[in-house]
Design a protein around this nucleic acid. Structure first.
Length: 265
DNA sequence: ATGACGCCTTCCAGGCGA
């Protein structure tokens, strides 16, 4: 089974590019972020032609997330409770026996910006929500069986290894102790960073600024990933960042994020 | 220090991304 996450930076502008990627990589389930369109405008037909059905939680102009799947999917949740003011940033669906959640986490803008504490609060709500669900599953004795994935654009650089600037960026937005504590808080819910599990020491990035030739200079950040619980980790074959799709394709502009892919048994 | 690129929008200069 192949699952993936991708911040497409505007699906309307990216549709042809996304279509090429789906045909090429043939993922079974994909979490998409930054759709920048409303549910009514989602191009279900284009995805349907490629064999995907899609659950969407869209929003005009900004944010917006979706789950596209070649297997039957059942929507379970849209939005993060109590954080509706932050926009459409979470969707969860069951795909056969896999519980698949994708998120577009708030950016925070800068450590002095009023959005920064809101970003931390959003993560606190996500951690509380995940930990609540985990205890519910435990109570039903399903925790050991249910495979769960939480993937997306986390807008946090987990460790200095995940930034082109290494520890020189520590303390700046995306690289603060406050944000990293939240990322660790997710891992403390029994989740594993699947890219890091497959490649413990590799410096690899999932986002590069459009400006200044950042991609070709290797100036990137690893802010997109897939987290998986124990049952998912047990099935992990490989995790990789599809940097080829950060490049122009057939004259089409790429997103500033590359897809991240996980292959499971 | 700024802007660089690309997306969005009552349409086009300005906000936002990370």
């Amino acid at each position: 089974m192949r699952i993936a996450t991708w911040n497409v930076n505007g699906l309307r502008a990216r549709l042809d590019f996304v279509r090429i990627w789906l045909e090429d990589r043939q993922p079974d389930v994909v979490g998409l972020q930054e759709l920048k369109l409303e549910d009514d405008s989602f191009p279900h037909e284009a995805f349907g032609e490629l064999g995907y059905s899609v659950a969407t939680h869209g929003q005009k102009s900004w944010n917006g997330v979706a789950i596209a799947s070649r297997l039957p999917l059942q929507v379970e949740e849209k939005g993060l409770a109590g954080q509706e003011d932050s926009g459409a940033r979470l969707i969860r669906a069951d795909v056969e026996t896999l519980s698949f959640t994708t998120v577009y986490c708030p950016n925070g803008k800068d450590v002095d910006h009023e959005d920064f504490p809101r970003k931390l609060a959003w993560f606190d709500a996500l951690i509380a929500h995940w930990s609540q669900r985990r205890s519910e599953l435990r109570a039903e004795l399903r925790a050991e069986n249910e495979a769960a994935v939480l993937c997306g654009d986390f807008n946090i650089v987990p460790t200095p290894l995940d930034s082109w600037r290494g520890d020189a960026a520590d303390g700046s937005v995306f690289h603060t102790a406050d944000e990293r504590k939240r990322f660790q808080g997710l891992l403390a819910c029994g989740l594993h960073d699947l890219y890091r599990a497959a490649h413990p020491d590799e410096a690899a990035f999932s986002w590069w600024d459009y400006r200044g030739g950042s991609f070709h200079r290797g100036h990137g950040l690893r802010i997109d990933t897939l987290l998986g619980n124990g049952p998912v980790l047990a099935r992990l074959k490989d995790a990789w960042i599809d940097r080829d799709f950060r490049k122009k394709k057939d004259g089409l502009t790429a997103s500033d994020h590359a897809p991240v892919i996980v292959d499971l048994d």
